[in-house]
Amino acid sequence: MRIGITTPVVVRHPGASAEWERTAGIEEIGQVAEAADRLGYHHITCSEHVAVPVEAAEQRGGAYWDPLATLGYLAARTTRIRLATKVLVLGYHHPLAIAKRYGTLDRVSGGRLVLGLGVGSLKEEFELLGAPFEGRGARADEAIAALRAALGRRVPEFHGEFYDFAGFVVEPYAVQERVPLWIGGRTARSLRRAVTHGDGWVPFGLPLDTLSAMVRRADPPGGFDIVLGPGRPLDPSGSPEAAERALEAVRDAGATIAGVHVTAESAGHYCEQLEALHALGTKIGIVFGDADD
């Protein structure tokens, strides 16, 4: 199992984000990314919302850094850690727009992109952006297929019900022959979508025993990523035994990658916690560095 970092600051959930994140900016984000890169963590993340209704922001937060700008900056401050969108909302973009923008990110980062993709659930945001909300699942399935046909190709071609293109040059384009596509969600349908169209599943909001049972029933193929989190921040310095148990529980649930965040009082403390988590993870057999690259 590998460990990836749920990047602090870039998303602020009420009651979940640390106080220091309220006033932190890109320098602190970069400091954390550099530490995670140096220590051999698998990935850092950035999520997407364009505009969150005031009422919804009280529950899910209103601060969401743009993933393309943020990960582009972090690409320049790191050398090997993967850059993961977690997640882009497919309905907000044409597949070729994603292929162009994030294919460029893959190129400038030397092939470190992971595209986390989701169907989306915030109806008001869909309406604001002029994106169809009804039927978004079917559109998302086709968008994933269109992306698979487009990423890494100069003249992509795809013919479907919602998306149809041929004879257009998209350059620059991704340097990876197969950009990993992680599909987000919390339903059996999202897992089927991931197994059918993607390279990994990034669920949220469900207990580990439920997730483990879902993964066993789906019987994903070899090489398929299951990205699970412990459900709470880890404190590897203050409570190493609890952090170790949490990582082992994630691994026992079937995770190939643990997506974690740690408790911290500052960006510097966050980096110290990453050092402690690295030492703890190494002891229990977590893989760090370039072993799977």
Results as ranks from 00 to 15, higher is better:
Pro8Ile: 10
Val10Trp: 05
Pro14Lys: 09
Ser17Glu: 12
Ser17Tyr: 14
Ser17Arg: 13
Trp20Thr: 01
Gly25Ile: 02
Glu27Trp: 00
Glu27Ser: 01
Glu28Val: 00
Gly30Met: 04
Asp37Ala: 02
Leu39Arg: 13
Ile44Arg: 09
Glu48Gly: 11
His49Ala: 15
His49Val: 13
Ala56Phe: 02
Gly61Lys: 15
Gly72Lys: 06
Gly72Arg: 12
Gly72Ala: 15
Tyr73Gln: 13
Tyr73Ala: 15
Ala75Phe: 13
Ala75Thr: 09
Thr79Asp: 11
Thr79Cys: 09
Val87Asn: 09
Val89Trp: 12
Pro95Phe: 11
Pro95Thr: 06
Ala97Asp: 14
Arg107Tyr: 09
Val108Leu: 13
Arg112Leu: 05
Leu115Arg: 09
Leu122Val: 08
Glu124Met: 10
Glu125Phe: 11
Glu127His: 15
Leu128Met: 08
Glu134Asn: 05
Gly137Val: 11
Arg139Trp: 06
Ala143Gly: 08
Leu147Phe: 02
Leu147Met: 09
Arg148Ile: 02
Leu151Ile: 06
Gly152Ala: 00
Arg153Asp: 07
Arg154Pro: 07
Phe158Ile: 08
His159Cys: 09
Glu161Asn: 02
Ala166Gln: 05
Phe168Gln: 06
Val175Trp: 00
Gly184Cys: 02
Arg186Asn: 14
Ala194Arg: 00
Gly198Met: 01
Gly198Cys: 03
Val202Ala: 15
Gly205Asn: 08
Asp209Val: 12
Ser212Asp: 04
Arg217Asn: 07
Asp219Glu: 10
Gly223Gln: 09
Leu228His: 02
Leu234Trp: 10
Ala242Pro: 10
Glu244Phe: 10
Ala253Trp: 15
Gly254Leu: 11
Ala255Val: 03
His261Tyr: 14
Ala264Leu: 09
Glu265Gln: 10
Gly268Ala: 05
His269Leu: 05
Cys271Gly: 07
Leu274Glu: 01
Ala279Tyr: 12
Val287Cys: 05
Val287Ser: 13
Asp290Phe: 04
Asp290Lys: 07
